[in-house]
Design a protein around this nucleic acid. Structure first.
Lengths: 133, 133
DNA sequence: TTTAGTGCAAAGTGTTTGCAATGGG
DNA sequence: CCCATTGCAAACACTTTGCACTAAA
């Protein structure tokens, strides 16, 4: 799975890269580099260095395998959900939730011809209501 | 101007705070802490320390005088435009431009009752066309 | 054998903090 | 006189980099 994805993007699938990619594919929160290191280091026979995590994440971002999201100051989070989507940040818990693209009705982006928009992303801030049982 | 704004928000208007606030009110790009320090230190009779810039910026954010925006990893930018607006990031130059709220037609935020939205912000990424003279 | 990738430690940024000195109320 | 604010330097958190070692083509 991760293996083929890396191949298809022209990234040599080393063991470290495969497990990091797989970890990001499996996790639907948005891990930081440190969380990736923590979550992955035990699934490798060899040790995994922090430098390799950062190098790999940068490689994956450049190759378009994952996206870097900066929703809070000081740290970058990584997201293997490359389908277009928005983010909801729970201001209480800091939890970040993906919002499907279609859930937000198309917005008419009539900014004018001087803005050549390549991408846009909506970030919602609020609180997530507890599901009442 | 800056003086009254600080008073009205319950922040004691020290000389350092006033010039920093005024600088942010005057600048329509989105300065980093360092750019604030550079832009402000000559307009004070006394020296201004980096720590005070950070302390002041945090105070201003907490008091709601300015907003902190994290649009790029690694550094926080500050924005004295407290009127609701969105951002356009020029992917070529890194320039960040305010987009008036009304320019983006109302988006139907039908996320569902479990999301109690307090705020949202749209970030556009793209290129700004040169104004053809 | 050549080259890309890894690991370690050191260096680099951006930001915060401890503490003494300062100064307005 | 008191307490908040400042400045400095050290500490901190996150990320990058230089360099030697390893492994794969």
């Amino acid at each position: 799975m991760a293996d083929e994805l890396l191949q298809s993007r022209g990234v040599k699938p080393t063991p470290q890269r495969v497990v990091i990619t797989q970890f990001l594919l499996d996790s639907h929160d948005h891990p930081t580099a440190d969380e990736v290191l923590e979550g992955v280091k035990d699934s490798l026979p060899v040790s995994l260095s922090r430098a390799t995590v950062y190098n790999t994440l940068n490689t994956l971002v450049e190759a378009g395998v994952v996206k870097a999201v900066s929703l809070e100051p000081g740290r970058t989070r990584y997201d293997a959900n490359t389908i277009e989507h928005h983010h909801f940040v729970d201001t209480k818990t800091g939890k970040i939730i993906d919002i499907p693209w279609e859930k937000v009705s198309q917005l008419c982006q009539t900014l004018g011809p001087e803005y050549k928009i390549q991408d846009y992303q909506i970030t919602f801030f609020g609180e997530l209501a507890e599901p009442t049982p």
